[in-house]
């Protein structure tokens, strides 16, 4: 796992970005880099590979083709199926694991961008985290020392995630403002 939005979720991120307005591939890359790419901008190849996968699955469609040369001039728009996919993605908690924050961050920003409830998203995620923590706690309290230590490690990481969730929840208003600007 790298500390970048996982390949599978680049697609959903694109869908989220397209939900507010149709965009060109290049626009999409710029919007993505601006908000989520940080130190690691997407390659063009990645952008078009993802877009063509989405096209193939019927989640986006080509809205219009402007005069000019190459696929560069195609404008993409989200389909009904694409909106459903985004909604499902956002409302479904991530499997808690280390270095999750970039995905969660992406989801929170997209929720804010698309006018969905980021607080609910966070609550859902917390419940998922806690579910796993309960399981780990139970395993730890009934396991041997090695098991206990391993579980403890995972628990501390999950706890750190949860703290981040709490903090983000407390700062949602601030974040919403920054995103909409």
């Amino acid at each position: 796992m790298v500390c970048i939005v996982a390949a599978m979720s680049i697609g959903q991120t694109f869908l989220g970005l397209l939900e507010s307005t149709p965009r060109h591939g290049y626009d999409l890359k710029r919007a993505y880099d601006e908000r989520f790419g940080q130190a690691r901008p997407l390659h063009f190849g990645q952008v078009y590979a993802t877009l063509s996968r989405l096209l193939r699955n019927g989640l986006v469609e080509v809205d219009s083709v402007e005069a000019g040369e190459g696929p560069d001039r195609k404008r993409y728009a989200i389909t009904e199926a694409g909106v459903t996919d985004v909604r499902r993605w956002l409302s479904q908690p991530e499997k808690p694991e280390p270095y999750l924050h970039s995905v969660l961050y992406t989801k929170v920003v997209l929720a804010l961008l698309t006018g969905r409830s980021a607080a609910d998203l966070l609550d859902t995620q917390r419940a998922e985290h806690l579910r796993l923590m309960r399981e780990l706690t139970r395993r730890r309290d009934s396991g041997d020392l090695a098991e206990r230590l391993i579980c403890d490690h995972a628990l501390f990481h999950l706890e750190a995630d949860l703290r981040w969730l709490e903090l983000t929840a407390a700062r949602l208003d601030e974040l919403a403002e920054a995103v909409r600007r």
Binding site: S91, Q92, R116, D120, D123, T124, A127, L130, R134, E135
Partner: peptide, 25 residues
């Protein structure tokens, strides 16, 4: 995964532990 509502209705369910048994076993 179905039945999950965007208003977070499922957030309070802790008993979805694996196997569906009550969490304490």
């Amino acid at each position: 995964m179905t039945g999950i509502h965007a208003d977070g209705g499922a957030a309070a369910t802790g008993r979805r532990a694996d196997g569906g048994a009550p969490a304490d076993g």
